[in-house]
């Protein structure tokens, strides 16, 4: 079971919160704030679980996810998609793009932790 999580999110406070929650649980957390070069960062870091925000500067999370799924190397990477627009349509689009899990902001800390544990376990 891998213990490395990459958080792609442009809100430093949210990154700080997620890092705190996961680090305490024994995960090593890295983060990145920009959508434009996110794919390269993901390939370089090769996380066990990816937490991906949808509204990123430079490039949308959906687009990044789409490219991830198209690449055999990252097609199976567990991705927890975060979005601040909690509408049913967003959930559908997340599923269509191949998100392993989907979470609307604001979330409960226990929810993040459980999701990451489940994704790494599965």
């Amino acid at each position: 079971m891998g213990r490395r999580v990459l958080v792609i999110e442009d809100e430093p406070n949210i990154v700080a919160a997620i890092s705190f929650i996961l680090s305490r649980d024994g995960w090593s957390v890295e983060s990145h704030a920009d959508g434009q070069d996110a794919l390269e960062v993901i390939r370089r870091v090769a996380p066990d679980v990816l937490i991906l925000d949808v509204m990123l500067p430079g490039r949308s999370g959906y687009d990044i996810l789409h490219d991830l799924r198209a690449d055999p190397a990252t097609a199976a990477l567990p991705v927890l998609l975060l979005t601040a627009k909690g509408q049913p349509r967003d959930r559908e689009q997340a599923e269509r793009c191949g998100a392993s899990r989907f979470m609307a902001k604001p979330f409960a800390n226990t929810e993040v932790l459980a999701s990451v544990r489940a994704l790494a376990g599965g």
Binding site: I14, A17, F20, M55, G86, K105, P106, A108, N109
Partner: peptide, 18 residues
């Protein structure tokens, strides 16, 4: 607006839970 409201609320909720 939903996005703009939810973003700070996310930080507030996460850190208050902590």
């Amino acid at each position: 607006i939903s996005h703009e409201l939810r973003t700070p609320m996310t930080s507030i909720r996460a850190f208050s839970e902590i």
